[in-house]
């Protein structure tokens, strides 16, 4: 992926946006005053960063568990490099899959395609994984349930 240029003002805007947007009728007012810009200018800068792909998306980020998705697991699949894109597309098509990545892994580990899945209960999880295996034809996989969350934060880039 090409690296996008951004200036010092963009950096301050990104620092603001990587945090929590204030619950205020005019959430960008204070930031625009600090930057000496109008709110409209700040908004269009954010829009541009989104169009350029520096901002992937702007939205609420929920806590899965508190939102009713009690069973969260990482599934890891052993796939041939040649079939990775096809299988990746199938797994990405499941609504219960939030993230799906192909990774470079050591050969003795083997599982190279990862999909994070979210279910309401164990039964839903088992059915889902069976379905994922049937639809992809991949039988060599492992399910890593989370036992304990030690850290979950958003990255602070700036």
């Amino acid at each position: 992926m090409k690296t996008m240029p951004y200036d010092e003002i963009d950096k301050r805007i990104l620092r603001f946006m990587q945090g929590d947007i204030p619950l205020d009728a005019r959430p960008f007012r204070e930031l625009s005053e600090e930057l000496g810009l109008s709110e409209a200018e700040v908004v269009s800068r954010i829009e541009l960063l989104r169009e350029q792909g520096v901002i992937r998306r702007i939205s609420a980020i929920l806590r899965h568990q508190k939102a009713g998705y009690k069973v969260n697991a990482m599934t890891a699949w052993q796939v041939d490099q040649a079939r990775a894109d096809d299988i990746g597309a199938i797994l990405a098509g499941f609504v219960q899959v939030s993230h799906c990545y192909l990774r470079q892994v050591p050969s003795d580990f083997g599982f190279n395609l990862f999909a994070m899945v979210h279910a309401h209960d164990e039964e839903e999880l088992s059915r889902l994984i069976e379905d994922m295996s049937n639809r992809t034809g991949v039988n060599n996989y492992s399910v890593f349930r989370s036992i304990k969350e030690y850290k979950k934060v958003s990255m602070e880039y700036f």
């Binding site: 992926m1 090409k2 690296t3 996008m4 951004y6 990104l14 946006m17 990587q18 945090g19 929590d20 947007i21 619950l23 954010i46 989104r50 350029q52 792909g53 520096v54 901002i55 992937r56 998306r57 702007i58 939205s59 609420a60 980020i61 929920l62 806590r63 508190k66 939102a67 958003s154 990255m155 880039y157």
Partner: peptide
């Protein structure tokens, strides 16, 4: 605690 935050997800590869 249902909403963690409302904000941007930055595309790490773009930077």
């Amino acid at each position: 605690g249902i909403i963690r935050r409302i904000g941007a997800i930055i595309e790490s590869r773009a930077i």
